[in-house]
Design a protein around this nucleic acid. Sequence first.
DNA 1: CCCGCAGGACTGACTATTCAGTCAGTCTAC
DNA 2: GTAGACTGACTGAATAGTCAGTCCTGCGGG
Lengths: 205, 205
Amino acid sequence: MITTSKTKKDVVTEFRTSEILEAARKVFAKKGFHDATVDDIANAAGVAKGTVYLYYRSKQEVYLAALKFGIAQMYSALVEEVRRVSTTEEKLRALIAAKLAYFEENRDFFKIYYFELGKIPTHPGTIDSEFKSLYLDQARLVESILKEGSRKKAIRNLRTDQAAFAISDLIRGVVTQRVLGWTKSKISQDVEFIFDLIWKGIAAQ
Amino acid sequence: MITTSKTKKDVVTEFRTSEILEAARKVFAKKGFHDATVDDIANAAGVAKGTVYLYYRSKQEVYLAALKFGIAQMYSALVEEVRRVSTTEEKLRALIAAKLAYFEENRDFFKIYYFELGKIPTHPGTIDSEFKSLYLDQARLVESILKEGSRKKAIRNLRTDQAAFAISDLIRGVVTQRVLGWTKSKISQDVEFIFDLIWKGIAAQ
DNA sequence: CCCGCAGGACTGACTATTCAGTCAGTCTAC
DNA sequence: GTAGACTGACTGAATAGTCAGTCCTGCGGG
């Protein structure tokens, strides 16, 4: 049956796609966009170079696919963790903890996310803006928490949009240090400390 | 006279070196380490490719020199601005303002500083650690401000080392957003907002 | 149940290009 | 006249992307 065979093909395609994506993520994280060769990725995925080009049109396309997959996955993880709790305070703490935890389990991803982005050949206004909007999703998540806190009078009167960016930035900075391996403190300590700093900065009164 | 000729040679060397460095900085910032060619740099500096190799042994060496020069210059600028004022509050605000101002005047430098670092071919424990120590210099500058504030009872009781990292990170994150062009707010606004957030988070009581 | 064949998934040697780095030769300043 | 600063054509290596050919799978007829 046509439908069945199509489905089967789809399954294979999906399998190969994710297999290559997984390999690409590791290789890109280890070597960076330029030093990673398509042969490296193919080897890591256990296929020949030509096969990579059956599923992706270029090295750049593989890279972007790996990156987008990771960002989307992380965003879901953050939303999920924030949903689990109810007060503004808990939500903020959960967000920070979730991001650091996600980092801990996906160090390779963050390496390409933070250091490769903006390095790949791109025509202004296309790829860039796509990632910008993914970044903005996260800032909006923070802002929604702050807005709710503002309504509930849990946090002081401030510009939630600016504060959302500042908090996102702080978290980004902290994670960056970890990506570079320039900090050795325990993650749980970091979470508490950062949260404490932010909370004192924004809490009501 | 030998001395005179040596000095003259030194002057020429210094001129060429800084000429190439300046060109390298622009080219690397625009194209990134890999896409920037030595010919690009030579052209931008108005010399032939061979000349670049008279002053630097490799493309990587040019890159590292440009980067180190920029970091050292920025650090001096920060220290200078912080010296100008006396209270902890002023010092912190001055630090934030100085970094953002330096960024505004050296966008190209930050682009290579934030996005290229950790991407260049490096043997673990050599180059990396050199930049780490340059980074730590800045964190230590923040920490010295905090420690003084702590002694003066201007800020609450907290781990100044951790707080110094957090504040450095926050600033780093904010600047990163600007490097990527993902924020349009006025710098002066940002300075006030970030300072306010930090200050509320660390001020005494 | 077996055989053979068609379509397409897969391969990897090959091509075309891009550059880092070299070096034989030129030019210039003294 | 010469030392050495400077040049830029050249080489060798690396690698993105291609494509002619192989292999595997599943199906239809004997």
